[in-house]
Structures are given as C-alpha cells and as structure tokens.
C-alpha cells in the first residue's frame, strides 16, 4: 500500500491516490487534496463532499451523478462547474473515499 505525505501527515492511499483509510481524512486534508487538483473549496463544494460522506456512510458506495442530483439536490451542471474534468472521481478523492465503481 502506498502512502502520501500531506500537511506533515502520512496517509494511506491506493495507486490512484484514493484514500484507503477514511479515518485518516479530515477537512484540512480535503482542502489540501483539492488544492493539489487546483480546486479551492467553497461552501458549494462542501455541500457535495458532505453529501458523498453522508451517502457513503449509509450505502457503502460513492454516489453517482444522478443520485447526487436527485437525493443530494446538486444540479449536474453545477457539479461539473465545481469539479471540472472528472467530477465524481475528483469529488471522491477529495472526500477521502474509494474510486467510484458505477458506470453512470
């Protein structure tokens, strides 16, 4: 297992950079991970991260775009504006969860 040094701490990650131990995650880590991807977290970003966190704890998987829209009330357009390029993968990395496994 790989580790990554961030904010003076060593966190466990997989080869693609997803955290493997969510207990090592906190808001400062999220902010630092986001900065590495050139994203400055705002309240709108936190709404997405908080939803992924809640939903993962309930369902055990990273929610897809449709669930984030329907259950999390975050419009798809906004999601792509907040996390450009790869919205779900980026948001999952910042939220400290595994690689999303859904096709939609």
């Amino acid at each position: 297992m790989a580790t990554k040094d961030i904010l003076g701490k060593s966190i466990n990650v997989d080869e693609e950079g997803y955290l493997t131990d969510h207990s090592q995650w906190d808001k400062e880590i999220a902010t630092a991970l986001a900065r590495e991807m050139n994203i400055e977290l705002t309240d709108a970003h936190w709404k997405v991260i908080d939803f992924i966190d809640r939903d993962f704890k309930e369902k055990g998987v990273v929610p897809g775009i449709r669930r984030i829209k329907k259950v999390g009330n975050i419009p798809t357009k906004e999601l792509y504006e907040l996390f450009p390029d790869k919205p779900i993968k980026t948001a999952a990395t910042i939220s400290g969860y595994p690689k999303p496994a859904s096709c939609v």
Binding site: D85, K86, P87, K89, C103
Partner: peptide, 11 residues
C-alpha cells in the same frame, strides 16, 4: 447514452 455520459464523467 451510457458511453456519452461516461465520457463526460472522464473529462
């Protein structure tokens, strides 16, 4: 549709 959406999800 799945391929088009999946492509967007991958940037």
């Amino acid at each position: 549709l799945i391929m088009a959406n999946g492509a967007r999800m991958e940037g």
